[in-house]
Structures are given as structure tokens and as C-alpha cells.
Simulated scan of single mutants.
Amino acid sequence: MNESTERSDEDLPESVAGQQSPRKSMSPFVLTAWICGGTIIACVLACVVLGFVRSHALVSVKLTALDPNQEPRDHDVPLFKKTEALPDYQLLVIRREGGSVNLGTRPNTSAKDGLVWDLTEPVSTVEIATVRLQDQDKLMSDVVAEVPLAWEPVEEGNYRFEFTTSRSFAAGVDSFFQTPVGMAIKGAIFLAVFICIGGILLSVFQG
């Protein structure tokens, strides 16, 4: 066997031997920071995907009275003007988990030519249980009609409802964070960010 292959590490030049320094082990704080960083990325990706899935949102509602003579009247007194006798239409979006979104009121207005309510903030369709039409009153509003959300026009009593939907990523993400899973992921993100920052700072201070 060749003598060159039998030389031990002791025979290596000092310059080469000096280069063989032991590897430093990764700090547990840095490792924790990396794990938390991966958790944050996974949670953000989950939010993006699930937010997109729930991003189909209601953006406007059109209401039309089929027979103007059957519209409710606020005041059936001859002394009142005809315009004051028209109903005060109020539209509410009823959420599945409770609560509602008030789309506003159209006072002393007939719906014979169609009334349109545009939502300032779109609401995810998966959150909507029904859309309620009321005749607003100072003491107590009367429910005139209530219909489920549908892709096609819906007729209920003397009224036809037409819904317009569109993609809204903001509405989808907001809807997702209202769910128990969404709230848990949001909490996990904040906790992971806190641990990640704390781990990095401790690693820096400890050299």
C-alpha cells in the first residue's frame, strides 16, 4: 500500500489542520424561530386559500314591486300627501351565525320601478341566511318579505328580489376569520410571531 495513503491527520500541514474547526450546533432559539416561521407561512397560505374559497360575495340587491297598488302604506289618512303614504323600505342581510347587516332605508319610496341597494362592504355568500325586507317604523318595523339568497331572481308575495354577486377576496378573508378555525389560526399566527421574534432576540443577546 502506498505510504501517502497511510499518513494520519497529524501529518497534515498546520494550515490545513487549522481549517478543520468543529461545527457549531444551532441554537435552540434559532431552531424555534425557524419552526415558528414555517408555521406562520403555513397559516398565511391556509388563510389565502380558504379566503379565496369564501370570496363569492353579495354586492347589490334589487327590489321590484310587482303590483304597486299592493305596497304597504305608512299612513292611510286623507289629510296626508300621497308621497308621505308610501312605505319606508328597509333591507337587512341576516347572517347565519346571528346578527344582520343594515343596507339602509328608502323613505316614502315605491318599488314599482325597482330599488337597488349597493353594499359598501360585500358580504360573503356563505355567511348569508336570508335577506329581509321591512317597512320601517319608529316604533316597530313590519316584515314585508324574507327570502334566501339565490342565483336566480326570487319572488315572494308582491316583490321580486334580484341579487348581484362578485368575487371579493377581502370579504372572503373577513368571513374566514369569523369562523372558529379562522380565529384559531389568527391566534396561532400572533403567537408564532411573538415566539419567533423572542427567539431571535435571545439568540442575538446570547451571542
Results as ranks from 00 to 15, higher is better:
E127T: 12
D9E: 12
G51T: 02
L91D: 01
T125V: 14
S60M: 04
P180K: 03
F177V: 06
L133I: 11
D135L: 00
C43H: 03
T5H: 11
L201K: 13
S141G: 01
K112D: 07
A65K: 00
C43Y: 02
P180L: 01
W117Y: 10
D135W: 04
I195C: 14
V144I: 13
D142S: 12
E155W: 14
A85W: 03
P72W: 05
F194I: 09
L86M: 10
D142L: 13
V154N: 02
G157C: 05
Q134T: 12
E84Y: 10
L202S: 14
L50K: 12
V154M: 04
C43D: 14
L201C: 11
V59Q: 02
V30G: 03
A111V: 06
K186H: 15
G172F: 11
A170M: 14
T125G: 01
E162I: 04
D135P: 01
T105W: 08
V93E: 00
R106D: 06
S175D: 11
A85H: 07
T130G: 07
L31Y: 02
I94Y: 14
V49F: 05
Q206R: 15
Y89R: 01
L79T: 12
E97T: 15
S124K: 04
S100Q: 15
R23G: 05
V49Q: 05
D142Y: 04
T165Q: 11
G172M: 09
G114K: 09
L103I: 03
A65C: 02
V154Q: 07
A188S: 11
C47A: 15
R167H: 12
T179R: 00
E162Y: 00
L149W: 07
K186N: 07
L79W: 10
A170N: 05
G99T: 10
A170I: 12
V204Q: 11
D137L: 06
V77P: 05
G37S: 01
E127Y: 02
I128L: 03
V173N: 04
A192V: 00
Q20M: 11
G104E: 06
V77M: 11
F176E: 01
S15M: 04
Q70H: 12
F190Y: 13
V131W: 10
I94S: 01
T105A: 04
S166T: 09
P148W: 08
T39Y: 00
T32P: 04
L50A: 05
D137V: 04
K24H: 13
P72S: 05
N158Y: 01
P180S: 05
E3L: 13
R73Y: 12
V53R: 05
S124E: 03
S8A: 08
S15I: 13
V147H: 03
V126A: 12
W151D: 11
T64H: 09
L66A: 10
L63D: 01
V49D: 02
G99S: 15
S124V: 00
V123A: 04
T39H: 08
V144G: 03
S25V: 06
